[in-house]
Amino acid sequence: MNTTLTAAPHAALNGSFISTTDKLEQNLSNVIRGKEESIRLLLIALLAGGHTLLEDVPGTGKTTLAKSLARSIAGVFRRIQFTPDLLPADITGSSFYSPQDGSFEFREGPVFANVVLADEINRTSPRTQSALLEVMSENQVTVEGRRRPLPQPFFVVATQNPNEFHGTYPLPEAQLDRFTMRLSLGYPDLEDEIAVVYSQNEHHPFDDLVPVVTCEEVLALQEQVKQVRFDKAIAEYMLRLIEATRHDPRLRLGISPRGSLALYRTAQARARVANRDYVLPEDVRTLAVPVLAHRIILDTKAKYGGLRNEQIIEEALEKIPVPR
């Protein structure tokens, strides 16, 4: 693990970080009211180079959030509406025969974008789901034996509706592991909802959104995140939290090393967003639930006993002593 902070050649961005992330946050909260916490987590996931699963009921602003993010970073935004008949080639792209010159031409699928909204990912067949997840983990598309790199930054925001079961193919828990974070937006509170209603009286605030950061800046920020110091004591703490889930008798599956890596990177990103060059135990603690909760699998008895994944992580947080 990289625990030492080394100087990096990003002189052009020197000192601009705080304004960059603040600008992004500000921009997004103009559109999505009262969800600062979720916006921040989304940014953290972006800076950590991970992907996010938004799990919530319809109409809470999942799509708007993803669209706004794409526009804010001046990137290409594509949306894939997942349906049961969607095929892998529909998302990755495929070669078409061109009658004019008699050759095959590759036509890029919707994943060739900076921000991809995979809407209602649980509505498509597992085959197509797997294709997307593969793209997410490898950042490239292999079609007909040719590797085609995806544009950078590449950020997938998948949404799913947890309440509908009719005609859905729920993501297998093992595949959920590939999402860095699972968030839910939830309903806005009264005041915020009033603001939402009024703000859309004449036109959607999304239309006023202007890009505030370039894709290059985002990439540079992702590099800087890697230089945030992660003290060994905190790493120990983090791994103890994770270790606790691996030995929990109520769990069928604990947290994988991929989960540790995700928590490590997102903690660094959170420190960056808070404009620190070092990770605090708070970073790990705040991110433990969104980063880890969806990665564990409760055993049947616990599940029907009404236990939630989040509770397991919260219990661990209340049990393991914190480094000070």
């Binding site: 902070l5 990096a8 961005l13 020197n14 304004s19 800087q224 230089q227």
Partner: peptide, 9 residues
């Protein structure tokens, strides 16, 4: 001067 890429919090 803060480390590279940081402003003084």
């Amino acid at each position: 001067t803060p480390p590279n890429g940081f402003s003084l919090p």
